[in-house]
């Protein structure tokens, strides 16, 4: 559908998109979720949308697969306005990972992963091959294929969610706080896997999070949003940290927090440990 090469290197462009939802009651004012937001996502890169709750991240993400229609403005994929594409066909070409994996409870792990290849017309054997390959890629044991989602841990379900989204090798992957519900250790593992997968497949990814350390770890480009999808800064992780554009960005990075001051302490084995204001270890100091 949109794998043909175009002159531009941007895969997804948001052109002054606005989304208003009808208010909760007839007399209530409309809710403006996103107002006049524009940005682009480069082909083969990870763009992270970060920002506090309710700033319109999910709304922007869902505009890409037409689960949300912009009230005004356009979303282009490879230069083509997606408003003219068949939404069902479009969704079958775009991977989508939800916050709690969103696995279909009545289908096994294998059946869940096979959904999109099957919808796109793959035979059972072809789909089976995709399933095996994807399980391997997200490092899940092959014998997990016949389990039902209710029999998985949160982290395993999340891996299956990623595997399912990537099973038909989409050019675009949308992820909405995919690792929010798993513990920090598993999260770090999943993030690393995602970076590896992106490297291997060259997928263009749009990733939503409100965890700044996750954003800094994953993003080639980070877009920091304030309420109504207002872009506060759009930069590489390094630029964002080294040159925060304003106080909002500094606050979000936690640079101004009172208890962010770090101290050093010498441990019994003679190493220098860094501790935060509460005495919690933050790491060890090493001479560069």
């Amino acid at each position: 559908m949109f794998n043909r090469k175009t002159a531009t290197s941007s895969m997804i462009s948001f052109e002054s998109v606005t989304k208003t939802y009808p208010g909760p009651s007839r007399s209530a004012a409309d809710v403006v979720a996103v107002r006049d937001t524009s940005f682009t996502v480069d082909t083969g890169t990870i763009t992270v949308l970060a920002g506090s709750s309710g700033c319109g991240k999910t709304t922007l993400l869902r505009m890409v697969n037409r689960m949300v229609a912009p009230t005004s403005g356009r979303v282009l994929i490879n230069g083509d306005d997606i408003a003219h594409m068949n939404p069902v066909q479009l969704r079958r070409k775009i991977g989508y990972v939800m916050q709690h994996a969103g696995l279909l409870p009545h289908k096994t792990v294998a059946e869940n992963i096979a959904v999109v290849p099957r919808l796109n017309g793959a035979s059972r054997t072809e789909a089976k091959r995709s399933v095996d390959r994807m399980l391997d890629m997200v490092e899940l044991p092959a014998d997990m294929a016949d389990r039902y989602p209710a029999e998985l841990s949160g982290g395993q379900a999340q891996r299956v969610g990623v595997a399912r989204a990537l099973a038909d090798e989409p050019r675009i992957l949308l992820m909405d706080e995919p690792f929010g519900a798993v513990d920090p250790l598993v999260r770090t593992g999943l993030q690393q896997q995602l970076v590896d997968i992106q490297h291997e497949l060259g997928t263009t990814m749009l990733f939503v999070t409100h965890d700044m350390s996750e954003a800094l770890r994953l993003g080639h480009q980070i877009i920091l949003l304030a309420e109504q999808g207002r872009i506060m800064q759009q930069d590489s992780p390094t630029k964002l940290v080294e040159q925060p554009a304003n106080a909002f960005v500094e606050d979000f990075l936690g640079l101004n927090a009172v208890d962010k001051t770090l101290r050093t302490r010498t441990t019994e084995d003679g190493r220098t440990m860094i501790v935060d204001a509460h005495g919690r270890p933050a790491g060890f100091l090493e001479q560069a």
Binding site: N65, M67, V88, Q89, L90, R91, R92, Y96, M98, H100, G102, L103, L104, P105, H106, V115, V116, L119, R164
Partner: peptide, 25 residues
């Protein structure tokens, strides 16, 4: 609603979604 959203995002349409997702659930 999470399951419904997932089915939509995967690209299920109309009758197929009714028969293979909604009815079994």
């Amino acid at each position: 609603s999470e399951t419904r959203l997932a089915a939509t995002a995967l690209g299920y349409s109309g009758f197929r979604r009714f028969l293979t997702v909604e009815l079994p659930l």
